[in-house]
Amino acid sequence: MKSPDPQNRELENAILLEQSGELTAAEREALHQTLDDRPELAAWARESQVLQKAGQAATEDLTPPLPELSRERILKAASQPTSKTLPRLLAVAAMLVLALGLLPHLSRRLQSPHPVFTTHIESVEVDFQDEDPLLDDLESLQDQLAVWSDMSLEDNRILEDENDWAEILLTLEEPI
């Protein structure tokens, strides 16, 4: 069974390729001629085939049939519209713009000379609600985002689609 020398290994490769139908007629004939003179390799060929059939038979014997529900789920997933890539990309781009836009405001706030514990809470609240340019920026970006992605930020679909979006990013690793 064991065939450590390189020549045998090449012949075993040829046997495997013959079993998978990847040899030309001429190569097949040459291999069969060789096997006539090499009974140990002919035995290896038979054993290899037996062990492959055994695995296949074991799967057939032990594997339960795939439930019909799986097929239905796949078809259901396929019938949902999947061309949401562009709006999603725009939404992500808008999020990045938003984050970059907020960064200077946030850093200014963090670098404020007034210690946090001395600030009057009520006045901060009023500032934030009525006059804060940060809020204006947020609103305008929110409007832009809604226009670009053709959907409202309040739309629950955005949250629902997060998983899908993550899946799309993951499958980008699997191109042909």
């Binding site: 789920r73 796949i74 997933a77 396929a78 999947t82 699997e174």
Partner: peptide, 10 residues
Amino acid sequence: QDVWIRAIKG
């Protein structure tokens, strides 16, 4: 199922 859904989406 996961493989097929990923295939459909991609």
